[in-house]
């Protein structure tokens, strides 16, 4: 079985903040790491490989520094790694990103049976790129797969939660899955594999290697959405702040909860008065 796992390098910080006085963004930490959900996709792939045999490739799009996550993927057992890096890919939204990755997959010239993605990234949190790649490649997909029940050469049986229903779905190959967090436990990187990995093993791709070389389909040009502005969420208007002793704070809060009738559990919950 030929498996491809799409991974992404994400900032290892949740702390992009705006300075309240100057309105300027404050950045903290420039550490990056592999998107944690992609580690789970990678492990899912490794476990299928153990059963079925075959190869596992990893693909990412990003700046040259994204080599790091590919090196990490080698340490986790990936056979080959592909990096799509080109300034013309910058500023891509879901539409351009999925198109670029799908072009990369076609340029690799391998007929993958299974493409795996993490359920979402921790920096974008949209969970859209996986299904969007499946659409470009015209293959079926199931997102947020909770369990893979069985694997054959032609199909998979997977479980997906939809509201209060657990659906058991048979999906024919080739297909794309995005996997839920609990599906497998990611392994620790192997030091032997890490030592054996070499940057030179990474295949680099630019727009020039893509089957479609029309720059209008990539990066900012190929994106449908535009970010008009970024801003800090507005603060609540009618706030009160208590900075007293724990005893006094507790008494004040208890009074408020009683006044709002939360303590009797009635339905007559009013708003906070000014």
């Amino acid at each position: 079985m030929k498996i491809l796992v799409c991974i992404k390098q994400v900032p290892d910080t949740q702390k992009v903040q705006v300075d309240p006085e100057t309105g300027v963004l404050i950045r903290e930490g420039i550490e990056t790491k592999m998107n944690p959900y992609d580690l789970i996709a990678l492990e899912t792939g490794m476990q299928i490989l153990k059963k079925m045999g075959g190869t596992l490739d990893v693909l990412t799009m990003g700046p040259p520094a994204a080599e790091e996550v590919l090196m990490e993927a080698f340490a986790l057992g990936a056979n080959e790694a592909w990096l799509m890096s080109d300034r013309r890919f910058a500023g891509a939204d879901v539409l351009a990103t999925s198109y670029t990755l799908a072009q990369g997959i076609q340029a690799m010239g391998k007929e993958f049976d299974l493409i795996l993605c993490g359920k979402q990234t921790i920096d974008g949190d949209t969970a859209q790129v996986g299904p969007a790649i499946a659409e470009v490649l015209e293959i079926p997909h199931v997102s947020w797969v909770k369990k893979i029940e069985s694997v054959s050469k032609t199909s998979l049986i997977v479980q997906q939660e939809q509201m209060d229903v657990l659906a058991r779905i048979e999906v024919s190959l080739p297909c794309l899955l995005t996997v839920e967090k609990g599906i497998v436990q990611p392994r620790l990187p192997s030091y032997i594999k890490k030592r054996m990995a070499d940057r030179k093993m990474i295949h680099w791709m630019t727009l020039d290697q893509c089957p479609d070389r029309d720059p209008k389909r990539y990066g900012l040009n190929g994106s449908a959405t535009q970010v008009e502005r970024m801003f800090e969420p507005e603060a609540s208007a009618e706030a009160v702040q208590w900075e007293k002793s724990s005893g006094e704070n507790a008494a004040l809060l208890a009074d408020l909860l009683k006044k709002k009738k939360f303590i009797q559990g009635g339905n007559d919950h009013g708003r906070i008065e000014d």
């Binding site: 859209q128 659409e135 997102s143």
Partner: peptide, 23 residues
Amino acid sequence: ATTTGRSLAPRVAVRFRTGLTAD
């Protein structure tokens, strides 16, 4: 933005080569 909605919307948006903003 349910499990199924998040699965469906990106496919349709890509088919029309248009933008999709999540959440």
